[in-house]
Design a binder for these strands. Structure first.
Lengths: 349, 349
DNA sequence: TTGAAAGCGGTACCAC
DNA sequence: GTGGTACCGCTTTCAA
């Protein structure tokens, strides 16, 4: 019933625990072949499993990292987590997943807990909160991490400083709006996210400057609030249908809302893309399953996770400098939810 | 740069580390109010964060659990993980997520790693593999867990024994087939999952016995292989369209394949439900976003995770007996992808 | 009420 | 080549 420890192995093999440690860790220190064999055999026979906890205590490295996300059920985060996990596994790291629902208190609490477990690093997958007080608190908590030699990488803009792997959110939206404009649309509604997220602000500002760049007026009533979830997309559809002057195109700031909007418009008897062109951002799997398939800006979500984790590892071995940033490319995926204004495609119904 | 330890706090508060430990852990052992205050103050001032690793070593409890899933990007597992995580957080547990892609070697490797980290328990979220050798190996690995006092709960049938929280997979399919039959369908195709999973076998056997119970012939050509992923649903649609005698209904053994099939059928010019009724299993979020919304058997995925985690905790405090099983209810969700054979609904097109 | 000391299971430095 | 031993940072008897 008692755990078998390195001592038991040493006894069984008739060697010191030092030697056991050496052979089991492939230490460069010389060990005779026969001793090595005896140790291996003993460890095997006793079914010895070295305590990673004990190892972590003395080596000051846990080989555990934490990833803080909004919600594992959101495909956006699920994809990122998968990217993180795959790289982590290949490098012998374990990952603790923390759902914060973007609640600052929960995020902060997780941060402290992860610190007490002495994780080797933390990845912030979600958009940063634009709350000053929160930003300071996180920054302070991160201080503890850095002091220990632990590292941090963010996959979105944050108020605190850290190594980052990003997409250019502002440009993503600019490109999306530009595409819609190139189709002839001049009245483009925008479904925004929660105001307190940096990502939301960047995307919104992309929308605004794209309109401005094309000399289009910014109509406040065309900016509809959402929360990046499916249901808010449906509500947005209602809001759009209630508009006295309906837009000819709608850009949802993420696919989940875009899909909700698609369903909402359909239920309201509005045809996409004949009556309204609709487009999203992210390119989650569902985007191609809906009818019509959703045009969207594909973000490299999996890569954000995998490259984020790779960066974390390099950061630890000082192959990478702190507080730098990497920006990954996005790309337009044209499907059938968007059509040129006044063309055959848009007219047929 | 050096970590502040309990010793530093003790020095600063002018007490022994024993006392520090006592007040910081709310020990029942008496400590004078002023001493307590001094300790608290010192800990605060030093920004002391007790090492959960050191605590774990001596208390022999890590408050970390592992959950082994197929793929975090699959809504099925994402939902379960969310259920696990929510309960874990409320109880002060951390959860390590392990993606195995159902590869036995990866699963086994994770199991050993988790054991070396002395996790308090493991949750198997996915269906068991029907491989004898694999079953034995897992059983053996679990032995190590049990010997340590760690626990295990499975959310599906497995060859090894463990506490389980289940759905009655055979009955789920029976109920689905029964519903289709009640709509007048007599020729029902079935999209199955990977043969090596217990879940697949149970569901398939539900399909077979449902047909038999209704005196319907079992036509092998109507059983189409899939792997529970979206793409295999699309391939299944092709296979179905190529059938000399097309079925009037299709039951996909999960929603992801059901949705893939829906898209595939649409592309092949086949109308759902007018030409073919289609139904899935799971009730993932996307099921209601596709057109037509998918009729499905809703499984309590979130509850599987949350109740699984609650059971794990109770198991550890011996409030629950090992190796028992809990079965959760499923329910039919009728949406518009299914229609009665020969009715107005099925005829209009 | 308070504290000294024996571990928990390893690693790594230093001798031999 | 091999082994002794001082920690890593905490909890928990056992005494005082």
């Amino acid at each position: 019933m008692d755990m078998v420890s390195i001592i038991d192995v040493a006894k069984k093999a008739n060697v010191s625990i030092t030697t056991v440690s050496r052979v089991l860790n492939g230490s460069p220190h010389p060990v005779s072949e026969e001793t090595r064999a005896r140790v291996l055999e003993a460890a095997e026979a006793l079914n010895f499993s070295p305590s990673a906890l004990a190892q972590a205590m003395v080596t000051r490295a846990t080989r555990i990292i934490g990833v803080i996300i909004g919600d594992a059920m959101d495909p956006y985060f699920a994809t990122i987590v998968r990217g993180v996990e795959d790289v982590a596994r290949r490098h012998g790291y374990l990952v603790i997943v923390c759902n914060s629902d973007r609640v600052p208190e929960i995020e902060l609490q997780y941060l402290h807990t992860l610190d007490s477990y002495r994780v080797d690093g933390v990845i912030f997958a979600g958009g940063g909160l634009t709350d000053d007080k929160y930003g300071r608190q996180v920054g302070q908590a991160l201080e503890a991490f850095y002091n220990r030699g632990a590292v941090c990488v963010s996959l979105a803009k944050h108020l605190f400083s850290s190594f980052s792997v990003l997409v250019d959110n502002e440009q993503v939206v600019k490109d999306a709006v530009h595409y819609l404009i190139s189709l002839g649309h001049r009245s483009i509604a925008y479904i925004s996210g929660p105001a307190l997220l940096t990502t939301t602000q960047l995307r919104l500002s992309g929308y605004k400057s794209a309109l401005e760049a094309h000399g289009l007026p910014l109509k406040p009533e065309l900016i509809i609030d959402g929360d990046y979830k499916y249901e808010s997309g449906r509500r947005a559809a209602e809001a759009i249908m209630a508009l006295p002057a309906k837009p000819t195109a709608v850009l949802a700031s993420n696919d989940l809302m875009g899909i909700g909007c698609l369903v909402g418009l359909r239920e309201a008897g509005c045809h996409v893309p004949q009556d309204i062109s609709l487009m999203g951002i992210d390119d989650i799997a569902t985007a191609q399953a809906v009818d019509p398939p959703l045009t969207t800006m594909a973000l490299p979500l999996y890569d954000l996770g995998s490259i984020g984790m790779e960066s974390l590892i390099k950061l630890r071995s000082h192959e990478l400098a702190d507080h730098e940033a990497l920006t990954l490319a996005h790309r337009l995926i044209i499907r059938r939810s968007t059509a040129a204004l006044g063309t055959e495609e848009a007219m047929k119904r």
